[in-house]
Amino acid sequence: MELTLAIAIGILSASGVYLLLRPRTFQVIIGLSLVSYAVNLFILSMGRLRMDAAPVLSGANANIADYADPVPQALVLTAIVIGFAMTALFLVVMLAARGLSGSDHVDGKGD
C-alpha cells in the first residue's frame, strides 16, 4: 500500500512539474492542480497510513491509539480550500492577462 501511494505521489508530481514548465497558462493551471494533489497526499502520508481509523472519537473514553493522526488531515483540509482559491485566482488572472496581452503564453508574448 505504501509503495502504491508513493508511486502515485511520484506520478502526480512528475506530471504536475512537467506542466508547470510548459509555456501555456492552461497547462500551468492543470499542472498546479496535479502538484497540489501530490502535495496533499504527501502531507497525509506523513501521518502514516491507517485504514478504518478515521479520527472521529467514539466518546469521552476513546482510546487514542485507535485513531489516525488528525494533524496532517487538518493541514490538508486547509490546503485543499486554499488550493481551490488559488486555482480560481490564477484562472482569472490568466483570463485577464490573455485579454490584455492577446496571448496565452505565460510571458504574455511569444508563441
Binding site: 497510513l49 485504514m51 478504518d52 478515521a54 472521529v56 483540509l77
Partner: peptide
C-alpha cells in the same frame, strides 16, 4: 483520502 481514514478530506 477516504481509504486512509480521512473522510473530511
Amino acid at each position: 483520502f477516504a481509504w486512509f481514514s480521512a473522510p473530511d478530506l
